[in-house]
Design a protein around this nucleic acid. Structure first.
Length: 476
RNA sequence: CGGGGCGUAGCGCAGUCCGGUUAGCGCGCCUGCUUUGGGAGCAGGAAGUCCAGAGUUCAAAUCUCUGCGCCCCGACCA
């Protein structure tokens, strides 16, 4: 087993932290709950950003930037919003050595500062829609933090759109949750369930919150992205109105949607193993590492030359690295790149050089193969796609095998503890029964499926009629 | 906020109970030589306000008091 990594079976939570350390992704800073994202971790974020940003632009959005400091009074304008966020806000009360007239909140999310601005931008239906995204940091003073999953300060993107009609805002909300689903499945290789939150779990200030939920290897759920239909709540709070084609005045309709560096936590917990990180190829900063093996100085020169020839055609078509550091032996390098999750490793030694071959090793399965150097690039390309889909399918099989219907409350309470998983249960829709789930099992209703089949049943808790199953699980 | 743990070299720790030479070990780091197909070996070397403040004492990493910080487990949450 890998040195320094606790196994998943031994202690899942320590394993998670060990993987982050072994892959050199991040470390705690000197301020409680804050982290330094190191180059290896940040490279993952950059790839996540790059792809998402592309998808946002393809759906008509543009980027902008709003400030981090928000007048405290802004936050208080939307009743539900302030109730939800006030307890976890960091507040600046001094500046320039003087006490401020009005305290400034460090944004926990930007709805208020953005809608106070949109008020100035919107008069007519011709000013709509506004489709803006911003990449930013936010601060939420959480009681309990975990690297990537929940840090005091975190990086994210938040989309904030303004529309002339409820229907259009609804379409936008659905479009973006689908963008998140596609990103999670096609890039993160993490299958997700799509649905909407209960009243209790929804975003403070939203009419409805849609979400994607992924299953981690310990069978717990992780909310991986949310898209909120905000109705006219913020427009009313900030008095943002527009005139329609008929000259009639109405409040603007809004959405907001976001994903954060938490996605890196999801990537780790969905795919990695007891040897360290496993990165899905499409998000891998380095897709292929080439490790030359030599016995003496005479050999290394020929080796370098041959590798340069071989990789010449890879430039611009493959993210690769040649690790010809002399201070480490091959075994050390194999291990290091495994811990760091690089999808494919290629070894070239005197034997391969002579036979015009390479040894190729898959990170996800450990499978070793001897391949001809001719046509290697195409073979690598093909394998990367194979690994990408294998990772997805593996995660999906695991999730599906651990998602089950349950109609017996006593059984449910047992199973949620051991072995755990996602449970599809009937629920009457009452807050009382929802609270019961949490109090007796520490599980929550993760989502109400969007396309859930209608099915007559009885609420798991109270036995009243229910028309649809909801997804219940313990979560991060 | 409750429970647990910790603060000594870059990292991980021992030493603290029972005060006493120059504060030690492993990893890492630097130099040299030998090595290089799954975490190399030998030799030499550099590196410390022992979390902070106050107190007790001839003498404090060690005892007393006060403070600060971090991590892990729960309640709040992306």
């Amino acid at each position: 087993m890998a040195k320094g990594i606790t196994t998943r079976a031994e202690d899942y939570s320590r394993w998670y932290l060990d993987v982050i350390q072994a892959a050199d992704l991040a470390e705690h800073s000197s301020v409680k709950g804050c982290m330094v994202i190191k180059p290896n971790g940040y490279a993952l974020w950059e790839n996540i950003q790059g792809q998402l940003d592309k998808m946002f632009k393809e759906t008509g959005h543009v980027n902008a930037y709003f400030p981090m400091l928000i007048p405290e009074s802004f936050l208080k304008k939307e009743a539900e919003h302030v109730e939800g966020f006030a307890p976890e806000c960091a507040v600046v009360t001094q500046g320039g050595g003087k006490r401020l007239e009005e305290a400034l909140v460090i944004r926990p999310t930007s709805e208020t500062i953005i809608w106070s601005t949109y008020k100035k931008w919107i008069q007519s239906y011709r000013d709509l829609p506004i489709l803006i995204n911003q990449w930013a940091n936010v601060v939420r003073w959480e009681m309990r933090t975990r690297l990537f999953l929940r840090t005091t300060e975190f990086l994210w993107q938040e989309g904030h759109t303004a529309h002339a009609s409820n229907e259009e805002a609804q379409r936008e909300t659905m479009q973006m949750i689908d963008v998140y689903r596609r990103f999670a499945e096609e890039y993160l290789a993490a299958p997700v369930y799509v649905g909407y939150k209960t009243e209790r779990e929804k975003f403070a200030g939203a009419v409805r919150t849609y979400c994607i939920e992924a299953m981690m290897q310990d069978r717990k759920a992780l909310q991986a992205g949310t898209s909120h239909h905000l109705g006219q709540n913020f427009a009313k709070a900030f008095d943002v109105t527009f005139q329609d084609e008929n000259g009639k005045l109405d409040y603007v309709w809004a959405t907001s949607w976001g994903v954060s560096t938490r996605l890196i936590g999801a990537l780790i917990m969905v795919h990695s193993d007891d040897n360290g990180l496993v990165i899905p190829p499409r998000l891998a900063p380095i897709e292929v590492v080439v490790i030359p093996i030599w016995k003496n100085d005479a050999e290394i020169e020929g080796m370098r030359r041959r590798i340069a020839e071989l990789t010449e055609a890879w430039k611009g078509r493959l993210r690769f690295k040649v690790d010809d550091r002399d201070q480490f032996r091959p075994g050390y390098k194999f291990n290091e790149w495994e811990k760091r999750g690089v999808p494919i490793r290629i070894e070239i030694g005197p034997r391969e050089l002579e036979n015009n071959q390479v040894v190729l090793v898959r990170r996800d399965t450990g499978e070793k193969m001897l391949l001809p150097q001719d046509g290697l690039l195409d073979k690598i390309k093909e394998l990367l796609e194979q690994i990408q889909s294998d990772l997805f399918n593996k995660a999906k099989s695991f999730r599906d095998a651990n998602t089950m219907p349950e109609d017996d409350y006593e059984q449910f309470k047992k199973k949620i503890e051991e072995p755990g998983g996602f449970f599809r249960v009937h629920w009457c829709g009452s807050a009382e029964c929802e609270n019961q789930f949490q109090e007796t099992s520490k599980a929550t209703i993760r989502l109400i499926p969007i396309d859930g089949e209608k099915e007559q049943g009885r609420c798991l808790v109270c036995g009243k009629p229910s028309e649809q199953r909801v997804l219940v699980a313990k979560s991060y």
